[in-house]
Amino acid sequence: MSNGISALQEEFGGSIAALAGALAAGDEPRFLAELDALVQRRESSLFSELQKLTSDLQGALNRFRIDSRLVDLAEKEVPDARHRLDHVLKLTDEAAHRTMDLVEQCGPLAERTSLQAAELVKLWHRFRRREIDVQSFRDMVARMDTFLPAASVDMDRVRVNLNEVVLAQGYQDLSGQIIRGVMKLVGELEVALVELVRLSKSGRERQRVAGGNDETRRGYGPVVPGVAHGPAVSDQDDVDALLSGLGM
């Protein structure tokens, strides 16, 4: 306590004495100048304390904001993103199967039309070369009577299926929108984590999780442009060249 009062005496004693002297001497300008200096000195230390307090408070608020955003991301939006990506998987799966169903339905129709048309073309050429007898001609006409409406129905079915195939590609729009939403979330998560690391000033180098070998064993998935996992082949010719270099 005595230390405290002696520090105050040392800091303000001179000013107080000067103030008292000026007052006793009736020197108004000097009194006011001394008073201003005293107040200013007191205020500047107060301001610096206040500044430090404000900055701490701001830091705490930022941290709280990021923490609560991270909690929100981790608890709600990340699981939500997982569900959304699951839905993308389902959409692409359905669209692929739908497309293949339609194409598989078209196959036999196209094949039937093509075979029957080829047989009729042979008969027609014989007819044009006048190599056909009356019975064969009647046979050709009867087959045409059957073929033409059947081909019309079959090709109509093919046309409808092709339109359906085009419609099935609509999944790309839907899945694209969902993936964009997830990308936005990943971006937010990245910003929040980077900010948190900056605030916590851990300064520690991020340590890579061991297990690179396991990833090589399990696979990396398709090559995604801009996401590198080391030297990769670009097409089947590259694979063949590499394997033939290994003696395969």
Binding site: T216, Y220, G221, V223, P231, Q236
Partner: peptide
């Protein structure tokens, strides 16, 4: 899987063909 080291690893493990 298109990494060169993976293709080499598959070849060493005895794969008969590799289609990308």
């Amino acid at each position: 899987e298109a990494k060169r080291e993976q293709i080499i690893e598959a070849a060493q493990a005895g794969v008969n063909g590799y289609v990308i």
